[in-house]
Nucleic acid binder design. Structure first.
Lengths: 205, 205
DNA sequence: GTCTATAAGAAGATAGAC
DNA sequence: GTCTATCTTCTTATAGAC
């Protein structure tokens, strides 16, 4: 990683921990191991560093095509996988997914930064909501639609079924972001949630 | 409302919109209609204003004994009410509750401020989680426990049932906080959520 | 590209008159 | 309690040598 990239990396870490306004260019430079004025050879201003982070974030989000999708970014393939799964596989899948979003370094820091800065800039609210509400619900809704067609799950209201699957995952993620020591407890709840979800929506209406 | 109170009120509004670091004592004074130095006759420092807000918040939270409880702060009474309710009553109740927490001025500003500042100060994370995760789940869990005893709802896992009720409410609340124009959409989802919840957990296991 | 020195300005807080 | 004037400190950013 070159200096320009390291600046973004350290800035993201600091912004996600303390928020933009509480991080000084000096702090960033110190972490990178250079003096503050040297930063300005790489970025025009502190704001430019922030903007560059958002750019990286946007392109990464595009790559993964909607976060918290089930197994990848192709709902048809995912549905095939899902169809032949036993309950334990489903739980393992949900758990791994949850852990990925919880622990993936970039994702995690982006999410924390968005949470802190979302009310500061309206466009960030929109990014946050797309990433953590609209995209997951849309993707998973598509997937659950297929599973309902195939008779794996049963419901007359797919959007609500999707909300019932996703909302607990989202809620538990926000808990772990705030207090990592509760991860074990949340994972247990996540597991029970998916089992019960499977049970509730596997039955005939 | 005297000047001292107005300072807190305007500061809370500003903090919830822009975050502590992005609000200047001058901004607060301007809103109150006095000059910045006059603020210091009422509070020792900007931080003291913030601390005073937290104090008000804590005492208000104590009064309402756990937010997002069902009807009030007495689970036994609530359970009696719930028991005799038809589905439409349940939906109306959940809706009114949701709207209260969404629109109550103090609650709303507190919540937004906590969301922004939670990573800045660890104690605020704890306040946030107690208020929007532990307390609601604990209170509603107690209530649902009674309803299961009475046979109104059926489950072998009350904590997960509670999570299934609460997580969508929490998730939709975070959506509306970020984009008030989506309130109508969220209210519709909320209504369908409660109906479906009632249906899923009203059936025999 | 990195450094030291420093400018320019913002923001919190105080002094002292009224 | 409120004001004007001012201090102090912090923070971003630039200038210019190496």
């Amino acid at each position: 990683m070159n200096t320009k990239e390291r600046i973004l990396d350290e800035a993201l870490t600091l912004f996600s921990e303390k928020g933009y306004a509480n991080v000084y260019v000096n702090d960033i430079a110190e972490r990178v191991g250079i003096k503050a004025p040297s930063l300005y050879k790489h970025y025009k201003s502190k704001q430019a560093i922030f903007d560059a982070i958002l750019e990286v974030m946007r392109s990464r989000f595009k790559e993964t095509a909607g976060s918290l999708n089930i197994a990848g970014d192709d709902a048809d393939t995912d549905a095939d996988i899902y169809k032949t799964m036993k309950e334990t596989d489903l739980v393992a899948l949900g758990k791994n997914l949850f852990l990925y979003y919880l622990h993936d370094d970039y994702t995690k820091r982006f999410r924390k930064m968005l949470t802190i800065e979302q009310f500061h800039d309206e466009s960030l609210s929109k990014v946050y909501m797309k990433q953590y509400f609209d995209d997951p619900l849309s993707y998973q809704g598509m997937l659950f639609g297929l599973l309902v067609q195939q008779g794996v799950l049963k419901t007359d209201n797919i959007p609500i079924m999707t909300l019932h699957f996703y909302a607990p995952i989202y809620t538990l993620l926000t808990v772990c972001d705030r207090d990592p020591s509760r991860e074990e407890e949340c994972l247990k709840l996540l597991e029970e949630h998916i089992k019960k979800f499977d049970e509730l929506y596997g039955r005939d209406i």
